[in-house]
Design a protein around this nucleic acid. Structure first.
Length: 278
DNA sequence: AAGAGACCCTGGATGC
DNA sequence: TGCATCCAGGGTCTCT
């Protein structure tokens, strides 16, 4: 499930492989990938001859900056991932779910695979980019310097469960279900605690845990529990470090109490009933 | 303002 | 073995 560490891992890997190369052609095979159906039909014509000049990330969004000034924005949602192939070694035959791919003049291939077709790609002109993200009400990225301890505490001061707030991209951007559960366990805060009830000390612990867990996730190359893979097809390893996520009934690494599972905001939520008292 | 539920999708696991 | 049902959770949308 791509969250901030998986998207960051993807951005880092792709930077090494596709920057500066001239686009020869682009082909889309799943119209669902594009909210704008004209883009689905014209993506090849629109990208031909252009080059990626930078790849950035905001929350779970990937921003492929183009030399022409436009930005190809991508969201992996649940099962999307980018892959790199080359001529002579094509991954197309063994990847059944390629929805979009770009061929570069030097033979490099960028492929977008997405089993469930929840992923989305947009092509945004420079002058519309800030509007694009404003419309989506995207908050500061969880690892950006703007996301200070004071910012997070202020953002969490609402009458909703802290887990729900952490998952809300307009509160803080980049956290999904796995890292939300893991960071709340590390901070020893119950997922159903109302954000407004958190003490200064608890908010500080959540902030530290958030940075710690996300940085460890990046270091591990993300979490590969189901579908997430690196652009070279290899796996992340954070799943080996998780304390609570999908470990229902297993002992808490701190106190050996069996991990509990409840549902919050339609998401499976895992926590230690002893370490994380309500 | 907040929460519940439907929806978008597919594949793997589970149950009979 | 085969078929039906459930579950995974990123996000958007509607209704209460």
């Amino acid at each position: 499930m791509p969250e901030l560490p998986e998207v960051e891992t993807t951005a880092r890997a792709l930077r090494k492989k596709i920057l500066g190369r001239e686009i020869k052609s682009a082909v889309a095979t799943a119209p669902q990938l594009f909210d704008d159906k004209k883009l689905f039909r014209n993506i090849g014509k629109l990208l031909r001859g252009d080059r990626f000049s930078a790849i950035d990330r905001h929350g779970k969004y990937l921003l492929f900056r183009l030399r022409s000034g436009r930005t190809m924005v991508a969201h992996l949602k649940m099962t999307g991932h980018f892959l790199i192939g080359t001529i002579g070694y094509s991954i197309v035959p063994i990847e059944k779910h390629i929805r979009f791919y770009i061929d570069f003049m030097d033979g490099t291939k960028l492929l977008f695979s997405d089993i469930r077709k929840f992923g989305r790609i947009w092509l945004i002109p420079q002058e519309k980019l800030s509007e694009f993200f404003e419309n989506r009400k995207l908050a500061h990225d969880a690892l950006a310097k703007e996301a200070s301890e004071a910012y997070l505490h202020a953002q969490l001061t609402r009458n909703r469960a802290v887990k729900t707030l952490l998952l809300d991209q307009s509160v803080i951007a980049g956290i999904g279900n796995i890292y939300a559960d893991e960071l709340l366990w590390l901070a020893k805060v119950h997922p159903l605690r109302k954000g407004v009830s958190l003490s200064e000390n608890e908010a500080a612990k959540i902030y530290q845990a958030m940075r710690d867990i996300l940085n460890r996730g990046i270091k591990a190359g993300g979490t590969s529990i189901r579908d997430y893979r690196h652009p070279d097809g290899s796996s992340g390893s954070f799943q080996k470090e998780r304390a609570v996520y999908q470990r229902t009934g297993s002992p808490c690494p701190r106190c050996k109490t069996p991990i509990k599972r409840i549902v919050i905001a339609q998401r499976g939520t895992h926590y230690c009933p002893r370490c994380q008292e309500i």
